[in-house]
């Protein structure tokens, strides 16, 4: 605004003709308030830009225990229930397309069959893995013990926009439902992500397609391990990259990738189907194999998900136990 001010000032005080000056003053009078307001606005601008930069620095260098985390939690406690309420209010409208496709009992049948289909498909997809696993472990009990977990059902109520370049969603279950950070989130089709932070009533979930997400993966056919990185794209062309640790092993197309699992099942429990190999590249320079994985989960239309909790967790809602019973 500096040059404009300089231009304007001489013209305002120029010449003695009062009529033109009065006219000029009137004209500028309309935006005079703006000019009055704009001079302090520059220092205000500088102050607010500095405040933003301070916030960025605090959060960037503070990491997980930065003071911003508590602010995030406080804002989440306020916005979480509002987001849940809004999502519940609009659910009938977002469900309208479904209602047109199939109504009443038919709709119910389709949902039941879809669920059954997903279950069978994931069972078929992990067959190789399960068989290998059974062979490796001493007995069925150990495997069943490791795969047995309880699920807290939750719905996705808010989704981060792509403009923020991070793929996160909010679910309507929080610490009162027995959810803590670093728990595995999955749905009927496969692995969804992990819990980043919780408020009392909501939790923020990092999707596995996010660029920050790294999941230990295992190719079901060969039991080879590797790391799955997200590409930051959701929707139909959302893909994951699998870097295999053993450079000599080449996964075949259509091989299934399941989670490798971590200690105590945090952040990922083992044996959850993630996706299917679509293509393989070998990098000579890094001497590793890079496979592209098509995830089973459709991240653009996430709705009902389950959070893996230890069996016997106290929750504010029904918990699906390992044997399929509701508690």
């Amino acid at each position: 605004m500096g040059p404009l001010d300089r231009l304007r000032k001489p013209s305002g005080g120029f010449g003695g003709r009062s009529r033109s000056r009065a006219g000029r003053e009137r004209r500028w009078g309309g935006s005079g308030q703006l000019d009055d307001g704009s001079r302090p606005s520059r220092s205000l601008l500088v102050a607010l830009v500095l405040a933003s930069l301070t916030l960025i620095t605090l959060d960037y260098h503070g990491g997980d225990d930065s003071p911003v985390e508590s602010a995030r939690r406080a804002v989440g406690e306020v916005f979480g229930p509002v987001e849940t309420g809004t999502a519940t209010a609009i659910r009938p409208f977002t469900a309208v397309p479904d209602w047109f496709r199939s109504r009443g009992a038919l709709n119910e049948d389709v949902a039941r069959l879809q669920a059954e289909n997903s279950r069978l498909r994931s069972a078929a997809a992990t067959e190789d893995y399960d068989r290998n696993r059974l062979r490796e472990y001493d007995g069925l009990t150990a495997a069943a013990d490791n795969l047995g977990y309880a699920l807290v059902p939750a719905r996705v109520v808010a989704m981060g926009s792509a403009q923020t370049f991070s793929d996160t969603v909010t679910i309507d279950a929080g610490s009162t439902a027995g959810i803590h950070p670093d728990m595995t989130v999955l749905n009927n089709d496969g692995l969804v992500g992990r819990v980043l932070r919780v408020t009392r009533t909501t939790a923020t979930v990092l999707l596995i397609v996010d660029t920050d997400s790294v999941v230990g993966g295992r190719v079901g056919e060969s039991m080879e391990v590797g790391f799955l990185h997200g590409r930051g794209e959701i929707g139909g062309d959302g893909r994951l990259d699998l870097d295999l640790v053993d450079g000599a092993e080449v996964p075949a197309s259509h091989d299934t990738v399941v989670t490798w699992g971590s200690k105590d099942g945090a952040p990922y429990v083992s044996g959850v189907p993630v996706g299917r190999v679509t293509s393989v590249y070998s990098s000579v320079r890094e001497s590793t194999q890079r496979a592209v994985i098509d995830p089973y989960v459709d991240f653009a239309s996430l709705d009902l998900v389950g959070v893996v909790v230890p069996s016997g967790t106290r929750s504010d809602r029904a918990v699906i136990e390992a044997d399929g019973s509701l508690r």
């Binding site: 308030q33 703006l34 307001g37 704009s38 302090p40 606005s41 205000l44 601008l45 607010l48 405040a51 933003s52 930069l53 301070t54 916030l55 960025i56 620095t57 605090l58 959060d59 960037y60 911003v68 602010a71 995030r72 804002v75 989440g76 916005f79 979480g80 987001e83 808010a158 989704m159 981060g160 923020t164 370049f165 991070s166 996160t168 969603v169 909010t170 980043l196 408020t199 909501t202 923020t204 979930v205 990092l206 920050d212």
Partner: peptide, 27 residues
């Protein structure tokens, strides 16, 4: 005008940075 807008912009930005499901560096 700008004076009101920068303050509102800061408020809206902080809200976008902190409200779930945001996970990027705040600010």
């Amino acid at each position: 005008g700008p004076q009101f807008a920068v303050v509102l912009g800061f408020l809206a930005g902080v809200a976008l940075d902190l409200a779930p499901p945001a996970d990027h560096v705040a600010g």
